[in-house]
Simulated scan of single mutants.
Amino acid sequence: MRQQARIVDVAALAGVSAGTASKALNNTGQLSPATRERVRRAAEQLGFTPDTRGRALSSGRTYTVALLTTDSSGRFSIPIMRGVEDVLSAGELATILCDTRDDPLREQHYLRSLVARRVDGIVVTGRRTEPRGPIDVPLPVVYALAASTDPDDASVIVDDAGGAASVVTHLRGLGRERIAHVTGPANHRSATERAHAVIEAAGSAFLGEPLYGEWSERWGRQSVDQLLRSAPDAITCGSDQLARGVCDRLRELGKSVPVDIAVTGYDNWSVMAEASRPPLTTVDLQLEELGRRTATLLLDAIAGDPHHGVLELPTHLIPRESTLGMS
Rank of each mutant, 00 (worst) to 15 (best):
H188M: 13
P232V: 09
D153G: 06
V119L: 12
I96H: 00
R55W: 02
L105N: 13
L313N: 11
R189I: 10
V283S: 09
A303N: 14
G54R: 06
D9F: 06
D9E: 09
A197E: 03
R176V: 14
R38W: 11
I135C: 14
T100V: 04
P79R: 06
S72K: 05
T183Y: 02
L287G: 03
R293C: 12
A202F: 08
A301G: 08
A202Y: 07
T192C: 06
W219Q: 11
W219P: 03
G291F: 01
L299C: 07
V259H: 11
A12G: 03
P278K: 08
T264D: 07
D305T: 14
P210F: 08
V8W: 00
H196T: 15
G15C: 08
H170Y: 10
H109P: 02
S17G: 15
L171W: 09
H307E: 15
V310W: 10
R172G: 11
T296I: 02
W269L: 08
C98Q: 04
L114I: 09
L111H: 01
R40P: 12
L114D: 12
E312Q: 15
A21R: 04
V246H: 11
S239V: 14
R132Y: 03
R112P: 01
R277F: 10
G254R: 04
V283M: 08
A231F: 02
V39M: 05
I318R: 13
R249Y: 07
A146P: 11
R320S: 06
V259M: 08
R118M: 12
T35H: 00
H109F: 11
